[in-house]
Design a protein around this nucleic acid. Structure first.
Lengths: 150, 150
DNA sequence: TATAAACCCTGTAGTAACTACAGAGTCAAG
DNA sequence: CTTGACTCTGTAGTTACTACAGGGTTTATA
């Protein structure tokens, strides 16, 4: 009984952690260098050995990244995780700011979408002498609204 | 008469081009290195001298960038500009592909928006023991849809 | 005419968030 | 005992710029 006791006691090597979190190996080492993942203990041969806690933390990072948080924002969130206390207000503030940014990006992209759609439509109807799409890029003073996208 | 004849005959220095196009000086030199702007003639002292054609081309680049085209895409568009001919089909194809990408990004961002909104709302109501926003980041398998954002 | 301010030059290095090696060491199976 | 799969460190590449350092040039003014 307890067939995989050995392996679960021994922890995960980096490749196994990568598989468990669908995260690139190089990315894991990068997060470690960036101070987001704590330095794990090493085997005799110098291999990193990870435990369940690392899996959780890495999943936290990946999910935050999936939601578009920057690494700097993830760092801030992790500080709240580490400093147990009434982190709710700060976490909410971080997320609210990020939500604002996301909405601004959506607005910007919608403007682009509209302009592109119009240009393509103008290009489609008629075999005009010069490509109206290209002419539009020469002439049109496009958006210049938020310049939020980095 | 013809008060500013001298300056208009002489062309623009890089700072004037930058002002005319609201484009950073360093960015102009960068576009030159990247092969998007042709090498301009130089003054005796080695200063770049730009003409109207450069202004137009740089505006074209800036407008394309404002619409979210990558520099590689801008390069392709400029090839169509340079190779006069029936560029309409190709230009439309480029723009259509880009439009598809933009729409995918909008979709992704809308998902983020929804998840963030939900998280923040959950965090707002009630003084729960652990921050539900942070718990959600630990638990939730977020989006993992397109992974389009680079 | 001298000189200071304002401009321009090249070349390099920095940013975000990874990704991709090279060249070496470690470990498990046959 | 050797092959292959894995891991290690360190460095360099990516995108689209931006920011210097350390010089040269022009122009306006004293």
């Amino acid at each position: 009984m307890d067939i995989n006791a050995e392996s679960s006691r021994a922890g995960l090597k980096i490749g196994q952690l990568a598989q468990a979190t669908t995260c690139n190996i190089e990315t894991i080492r990068y997060y470690e260098r960036a101070g987001l993942l704590p330095l794990p203990p090493r085997s005799q041969g110098g291999y990193r050995i990870y435990e369940l806690e690392h899996v959780k933390r890495l999943n936290f990072i990946r999910r935050s990244r999936d939601l578009g948080f920057s690494l700097e924002e993830v760092r801030a969130l992790l500080r709240l995780v580490d400093a147990r206390g009434r982190s709710c207000n700060e976490a909410r503030a971080l997320a609210a700011q990020h939500l604002t940014d996301v909405r601004a990006k959506i607005t910007d992209l919608k403007s682009m979408e509209r302009v592109l759609r119009t240009m393509i439509a103008r290009c489609k109807d008629g075999n005009l002498p010069d490509c109206p799409l290209i002419e539009a890029l020469f002439r049109e003073s496009c958006l210049r609204s938020g310049d939020l996208a980095p």
